[in-house]
Design a protein around this nucleic acid. Structure first.
Lengths: 210, 210
DNA sequence: AACTGTGAAGACTTTCACAGCG
DNA sequence: CGCTGTGAAAGTCTTCACAGTT
C-alpha cells in the first residue's frame, strides 16, 4: 500500500489516533484493541481497523495493537518523526497565543521565526525567537529552512503574504485568517476558521431539539 | 426540501459562501453567478449550484443569484439571523485571543460570559463582561441564556466542564482543547485542533514534491 | 476465544450533462 | 443566449460480516 493511496479522511484521523495512543501510553497500556481505541477517539472499531490497515498490517490477531509500535508507525507516516520547522506570520492576539502553545512542540513542530509588520514589535524577543520584519520574509524563510507557515495575519494582507511564502519555498500553510487562499498546487493549505465552526453549531441549534 | 435533509458537507460550506457573498457585497456586485462564487470560494460551479439548490430555488436562470437575498437566506438557514449567545470557558492564552476576535460579532455571536478558575482573573472586567468563577457555571449559564460554549480550557478538565455545560443547557460546543468529548447526543460538538492540522500538513510534506 | 484484516455492500458526495427558464 | 436546477453517473468513504491468525 503506497502512502499516496491512504484516503484523506484517514489521514485526518491519524493525529487523533496518535493522541489517544499517547494517552494510552501514559496510562501504561502496552496493547490496545480497535474497539478500545475507537472508544477513546469517539469512532467505531471497524473504522479504526480500516484506517490502520491502510498503513500496513500493524496489529496482532487475537491481541490488538502494540501501543508503542503504532505510535512510531503513525508518526512516521505523518512525517513527524523528524522535527519540522514552521514560521509564524502575524504576532497579534492569535499569533501570540499560538507561539506559547505547547501542543506544537509536543508533536515535533518548532517555530523558528516570527514575522510581523508592526515596527514596535519587530526586534522584540518572544520565547526563543526575535520578531522579524515581514518585509524580510524572502530572506528569513530560506535562512531558517522552514517548510510550514502559520498565518495569523489580518484578512486584507493574507493572500499576498501566502503567495510570497509559497514563492519563498513554504510547502504547507495553516491559515487562520478568514480568507480563501489561491496558490499554485504543490502547496498544501489547511483552513481553520472559528467563526465558520460557530455557524455550523448554530445550524444544529436552529434545527430545534433533535 | 426539509432543512434536515441538507448534507453535512453542504452545511459546512455555507459559512464560506456567506463570507464570499459579503465580500461581493462590499465590492457592490448585486448579482453573482455560480462560477463567480465558486472562484471566490475555491470550489467549482456545479458544487455551488448543488449546495444552493438544497436551500430552495434561489437563483434566476440566465442571470445568477441575488447577493443580498442569498445572504439573507443562508443566514436564516444557519440560524444567525438572530443573535446567538455564547459562553467562553477558559481565559488563558487562547481564551483571551478569542474574546477580542471581531469575527464572532460580525456573524451574530455574542460572548455573554467568561468563566475561569484562576482567582486572580475572577472578577476582572474584560471587554463587556466580568470573568466569573467556573464553579458558578450552573447558575451563570442559565442566567445568560447562552446556548453555545467555547472551550479553551486545559485538557485535563475539559471533559468534566463539557459535561457540566451540557447539563446546564448548552447545546453546542466549540472545543479547542485536544480532547475527544463524549456527551449525550443532542449536544453538537465541533472540535478544532491546531496541532492536528499541522500534522496533516506534515503528511503532505512527507509525500515529497507533488 | 479474541481480535485483526479485508472484500463486498451500502451510504454518502461530487461531478456531469443537459433540460428548463428568464 | 446564459445561467440555474437536477436526475443520473461516477467516485469516495463507511459499515458490515466473516475469514484468518495467534
Amino acid at each position: 500500500m503506497d502512502r499516496r493511496d491512504i484516503p484523506d479522511t484517514t489521514i485526518q484521523r491519524l493525529p487523533l489516533y496518535l493522541r489517544c495512543l499517547l494517552e494510552a501510553q501514559t496510562v501504561r497500556m502496552p496493547v490496545v484493541s480497535s474497539s478500545a481505541l475507537a472508544e477513546m477517539c469517539g469512532t467505531n472499531a471497524p473504522q479504526v481497523r480500516k484506517d490502520l490497515s491502510y498503513l500496513g498490517e500493524l496489529g496482532t490477531r487475537g491481541i490488538g495493537y502494540d501501543v508503542e509500535a503504532l505510535i512510531a508507525h503513525i508518526s512516521g507516516v505523518l512525517g513527524i518523526d523528524e522535527r519540522r520547522r514552521a514560521v509564524l506570520v502575524g504576532y497579534g492576539r492569535f499569533g501570540s497565543a499560538l507561539l506559547g502553545y505547547p501542543g506544537f512542540g509536543e508533536r515535533g513542530f518548532e517555530i523558528v521565526a516570527v514575522l510581523d509588520s508592526d515596527p514596535t514589535k519587530i526586534g522584540t524577543r518572544v520565547g526563543d525567537v526575535t520578531i522579524s520584519d515581514v518585509r524580510e520574509l524572502e530572506s528569513v524563510v530560506p535562512a531558517t529552512g522552514a517548510e510550514i507557515a502559520i498565518l495569523a495575519t489580518p484578512a486584507a494582507v493574507t493572500q499576498a503574504v501566502a503567495a510570497r511564502l509559497a514563492a519563498a519555498g513554504i510547502r504547507g500553510i495553516l491559515n487562520l485568517a478568514p480568507v480563501t487562499l489561491s496558490l499554485a498546487n504543490g502547496v498544501a493549505v489547511r483552513q481553520v476558521c472559528l467563526s465558520t465552526e460557530l455557524q455550523v453549531l448554530s445550524f444544529h441549534l436552529a434545527q430545534g431539539p433533535l
